[in-house]
């Protein structure tokens, strides 16, 4: 499951991720990190079964959590099923079905944004 972690500037210096990993023993994978003077934002991926305890552990350390059920959303009426998104996505979120339509597997998305600008019919958005 994808989780967005929002740090404020007070706690950004602490090794929070390491602490959470040691405490929960969960396999945390960092997909994206942006940090500046006002704070930081990280997108992490954790196994579904560990999600609850990881979220609890971060919350207890003052980190705000947003869970990303669907990191990437498509307005289906706008999709023309071309497939440009398929070959630009680094994590193979999209694929052609036998009928030529383009299907997606949200779970794999790391919110890199490549498909958003690539889509010719403006069908894709990152969710928060």
């Amino acid at each position: 499951m994808k989780i967005i972690l929002c740090f404020n500037s007070q706690i950004i210096k602490k090794p929070l991720i390491a602490e959470v990993i040691l405490e929960t023993g969960a396999l945390v994978n960092i997909n994206k990190a942006t940090i500046d003077i006002t704070g930081g934002e990280l997108i992490i991926n954790v196994p579904d079964e560990d999600a609850k305890k990881v979220i609890k552990s971060f919350k207890s350390r003052g980190v705000d959590i947003i869970t990303l059920e669907k990191p990437i959303v498509r307005t289906d009426e706008e999709c023309i099923h071309c497939g440009v998104c398929i070959s630009v996505c680094p994590t193979n979120v999209f694929r052609y079905e036998a009928d030529g339509s383009v299907s997606m597997d949200h779970k794999e998305c790391i919110q890199c944004g490549a498909c958003i600008t690539a889509c010719p019919h403006n069908a894709l958005k990152l969710s928060r």
């Binding site: 440009v84 398929i86 052609y96 030529g100 339509s101 010719p120």
Partner: peptide, 20 residues
């Protein structure tokens, strides 16, 4: 979905829509 160019496997996708 994939072709070889200069010895490298490269992913392919269309800009036209076979579905439509």
């Amino acid at each position: 979905g994939c072709i070889e160019i200069n010895g490298k496997e490269v992913r392919t996708s269309a800009i036209s829509s076979l579905y439509v």
